[in-house]
Nucleic acid binder design. Structure first.
Lengths: 331, 331
DNA sequence: CGGGTCCGTGTAACCGGTTACCTACCTTGT
DNA sequence: ACAAGGTAGGTAACCGGTTACACGGACCCG
């Protein structure tokens, strides 16, 4: 019942295990006839090499691990899609580890991958650099994605400042003067940078527009709640600048419920360009998330195979104007 | 530089490797003081057990593999999300293997997981049972999801007939009389069942309504193209019954482009209830995809841990009426 | 014809854990 | 005082591969 091992094949083909290994791995110093006998024996027994044993002796897994906080939400799904695409293309396996709220759990997850993977891709936007460096296994190469980096490590980051600046300037250019930013969760690096860029861009390009920010957490309900609260308070608003697309969608729902016309009375913008955004006509900045993931894999595997390559690589998002903000009516 | 091994820990604590193993795995016959010395030594060296070596000697990986045809599309994303949730909750690891168009590649992928995983979850709706049984590794337990099964295997299936029947009856009940089905790709088991159920339901409940079917492939563009072609041909249509949500969305776009009012002139329905469907107000049947994946994992791990459990388990989808079909105006 | 090469193959050590089995010692009962 | 039983811990085999090294035979050369 148990699967055939290399020794079974050796016995069947009447050679040693060494020859079987050499024959099946395409080494050159095997007599053609011997190789044929081995191949035939392997086929007859339905032999499949045991990847675990192979990894142990080669000290190489041909697998990479992905640690991420939450598979929920299209943003992470997209990144994982890109990671998967590139991993498969390069003949590696992908080990997924998900939902690690706090640093201790994340460390746990990363440790449990030792001996299973050759390298890690870590997404932990909510972890501070110290905790992260503590948690990262010493011997394992890692690429950080959207994560405050400890400096020297390989990392991929979204240029949040550039993205937010294009959004705010677009809104100002189309005549909006009462902008409100719905921020992401405190402690999240992307949220923090977007928030700072919102403030900075207004200060630079429209010093007379007040900086108004309400708190959110990247989830749809938060966008809806924050927007409803704004409307209830009767505050003047002509543009809602959400820190991500999901909150922007929540905002759109709240505005619709309140009978506010988008984009006529209020413009809405998001961040990320998740697939949903296209369907909902949401103006946003496009972060090519799948490419971000794919690029992280490419760099990681490059490093595994000996490339010298460190430091942060930024991807610059691009403004996508859709129907939740009008393109005309400059100030 | 290389990570510490159990022998390093043994030397450091001045005991044998057996005691280290016993101490760290919580066996009972270890003197408390010895255990303390071992734990301290392990911490001092930053020792992390090598999962690969552990798996080899235990013949147990605590990991399951997922083979699926295409991570693209929200339907599969949802299933993977559910799989991941349950896998993590039970303390297992998840190995992902994606995009296997033909039987040979799929077999390849499954083979390459031997020695890495304890069991498999296989989604291959496009494979015929013979090829599948050929490809499935002999020794490895597997749960099939939305896949023509070879009979005795564990499997999860969507009750496509029941789902399609509720949709067609809903449309008939709300007065539609010119239904067109946009079918999924030939060879896909779900597509075939939905198509057959469309035909059967009309034959049973509205024998005078002609059965009209156009070909599609589950992709958005196919839905759009098929719909545009129907409109161009000037055929009478008051309901488009797509075989999945993505094609329904394509149909909606084509209708909008043509200035046809939904649901006033034409109703549109989908199948799956992907997250997008809620945003787009699409009437569909809800397949709790995430739960489907989670349930598959639960059964697989159950079987790994000795449970006797075989055969097909169906999940019954539920009709969700939204704004692309009206709920009033019975015939 | 002896010595050096090259080729094909087998033997056994090794990767890093787990654990069956054995030993040494310490109790405990009679 | 001694046999029996229990406890703690060491030795080495094993999981299933890979590969350094050794070895024997064929071939070539001077």
């Amino acid at each position: 019942m148990a699967s055939a091992t290399i020794r079974d094949v050796a016995r069947q083909a009447d050679v040693s295990v060494a020859s079987v290994s050499r024959a099946l791995n395409g080494h050159s110093n095997v007599h053609p006839e011997t190789r044929a006998r081995v191949v035939e024996a392997a086929k007859a027994l339905g032999y499949v090499p045991h990847a675990g044993a192979r990894s142990l002796s080669l000290a190489r897994n041909h697998a990479i691990g992905v640690v991420l906080p939450d598979l929920h939400g299209e943003f992470f799904s997209e990144i994982v899609r890109g990671i998967d695409r590139e991993t498969t293309a390069r003949g590696y396996h992908l080990l997924l580890s998900n939902m690690h709220a706090d640093a201790e759990l994340a460390a746990q997850a990363m440790r449990s991958m030792r001996g299973r993977v050759d390298g890690l891709i870590v997404m932990a936007p909510q972890l501070d650099p110290a905790a992260l460096n503590e948690a990262l296994p010493k011997g394992t190469p890692a690429v950080l994605v959207n994560t405050s980096d400890g400096g020297e490590r390989q990392a991929m980051r979204v240029d949040n400042r550039a993205g937010m600046e294009t959004i705010v300037r677009h809104l100002l250019f189309t005549g909006r003067r009462s902008l409100v930013h719905i921020a992401g969760p405190a402690g999240n690096i992307d949220a923090r940078e977007r928030r700072e860029a919102f403030t900075a861009t207004l200060a630079e390009h429209a010093p007379n527009v007040p900086v108004r920010i309400v708190e959110g957490n990247f989830r749809e309900e938060a966008g809806a709640r924050a927007t409803a609260a704004l409307l209830d308070a009767g505050e003047p608003v002509d543009a809602i600048v959400a820190a991500n697309d999901m909150m922007a969608l929540g905002a759109m729902n709240a505005l619709k419920d309140a009978g506010v016309v988008v984009p006529g009375e209020v413009a809405v913008t998001g961040f990320d360009d998740i697939p949903l955004a296209r369907y909902m006509g949401l103006t946003t900045v496009q972060v090519r998330s799948a490419d971000l993931g794919a690029r992280a894999v490419a760099r990681l595997i490059g490093a595994l195979e000996g490339a010298r390559d460190a430091g942060v690589e930024f991807v610059t998002p691009e403004l996508i104007v859709r129907s939740t903000s009008d393109r005309q009516s400059a100030a």
